[in-house]
Amino acid sequence: MTTATAERAPRPARTPGRASGLLPSIRRAWNKHWYAWAMVAPVVIVIGVLVLYPLGYGAYLSLTNATELNSAKNIGPVHIPATYHFVGLHNYWQIISGRDGDFYPRLEWTVVWTVCCVAVTYSLGLGMAMLLNRPMRFRLFYRLALILPWAVPAFVGVFAWRLMFNSQYGVFNDLVTAVGLPAQDWLGTPFAQKVAVIIVNVWCGVPFMMVATLGGLQAIPTELYEAAEMDGASPLQRFTNVTVPGLRPVTTTVVLLSTVWTFNMFPIIFLLLGNNTTGDTDILVTFAYQKAFSGVSDYSGAAAYGIVILLILVAFSTFYRRRAAAEQS
C-alpha cells in the first residue's frame, strides 16, 4: 500500500460538507470523533494560522495592484494608509497571456530544471543504492561518505561549491590549468550558470534518493531474484521485472516529493549565484522572490506568481497521484 493508493481520489476540499445545519448530527460526530480531532488540533491550528491564512492573504493581494509605493507604511510619526485597490484577475491575465514577458521563459526553464534535476538525481540515487545494496567490504564507509552532502546544511554545501567554481581562485580552474587547458569562467555565462546550479542541486539531492531507494531495495524479497534467476532471467531482465516493480511504491512517493521540492528550490539558486545573475537562471520561485524584494517591491505580482506556482503543483500532483493509483490497481 502506498500513500497514493490510501487516498484514492484526493479532493482539495478542506471541510467535509456535513457540518451543515443539523445540530444533533454535529453532536453525534463530535462525541464520536472529538478524540481524533483533539489529537490533530495542534497541527491544524499551526498550519491553519501560519500557512492557510498567509495563503489567503496572498491570494487577496494577487487580486490587487499592491506595490511598495501604495501599501500602508509609517514614515516617522506619519501613518500613510494603503491606497491600492482591487483589480480582479488583471495580474493573472498579465502572467497567463505572457504580456509581462517573463512568465513563459521562466516556466520553460523551471520545467527543464525540474526534469533534469529529478531525472539525474533519481538515476544516480538508484544507481548508488543498487551498488550499496550488495555485500562488500567498506560498505559502511561508502554509505557514510555518500550520505555526507545531505548531512551538512545546504547553505554550507552551496558555499563550498561557490568557492570551488570561483573563476579567479577556484579549485576547478587550478585543476584545469594544471592540465594545460585555459581557465574557464564557470559561473560566467547564463548557460554555465544553469549547468552549475543543476550540478549543485544534484549533489545535494542524491543522498536522499539513495537512502530512500536503498530502503525500497532492501524491502524486495531475495526469493524473487532467486526465482527470476532460476527462470534464466538476465541481469537486465531481473532489473526491469523484479527491481523496478518492487521499487514502484518508493519511486512514486520519492519522485513526487522531489519534483515538488525541486520546483520550489529556493536556496540553491539564490545562494550559489547571489546577485551575479542576468535573471536567466531564475526559476519561477526565485523570480517571484526578486519581484517581491528587489527594486520597487511588487507585492501583488509576486503573490500572483505564488498562486500560479501553487496551482501548477497542485494540478501536477493530483494528476500524478491519480495515474499512480491507476497503475497500481
Binding site: 500557512v51 529556493f266 520561485v285
Partner: peptide, 18 residues
C-alpha cells in the same frame, strides 16, 4: 493528509510577505 502534501508545494519565497 492532502493538506500535508499541499503545504510542501507552497513557494516559501511567496509566503514570506504575508
Amino acid at each position: 493528509m492532502w493538506t500535508f502534501l499541499v503545504t510542501q508545494m507552497f513557494p516559501v519565497a511567496v509566503l514570506i510577505v504575508p
